[in-house]
């Protein structure tokens, strides 16, 4: 599966990373070599093999339904680029 320059632009958009034409071309070349290596997997017979998502075979631990957190918004928002009246500010979202 050859990765195209259009693919690079599409995934950069999906990943919300600004990329200009020169960068896209350079990235395209590097990703090409990476995918050539990854494509080795195509030759492997995995018929009937269960996918492995976790390094340990375990069941989900659960927390009790209890409120254990208190308000730390002032501490957290001290890190924020833009806040007002306790809200995080972003460029206008158009619905």
């Amino acid at each position: 599966m050859a990765l195209t320059l259009d693919d690079v632009r599409r995934i950069a958009h999906l990943a919300r990373i600004d990329i200009d034409a020169d960068e896209a071309a350079a990235v395209h070349a590097k990703l090409g070599t990476i995918f050539a290596m990854i494509d080795e997997l195509n030759a492997v017979d995995t018929e009937g093999v269960a996918p492995m998502s976790h390094a340990q075979d375990m069941a989900m631990p659960l927390r009790d339904d209890a409120v254990t957190e208190s308000d730390h918004h002032a501490l957290y928002q001290a890190q924020a680029p833009a806040v007002e009246d306790g809200l995080y500010l972003v460029p206008r979202v158009i619905e």
Partner: peptide, 15 residues
């Protein structure tokens, strides 16, 4: 929630 009242042309985010 996104709050679209005017914050100097910005949107406020309440999580």
């Amino acid at each position: 929630k996104s709050l679209h009242e005017d914050f100097h042309g910005m949107t406020g985010i309440d999580l």
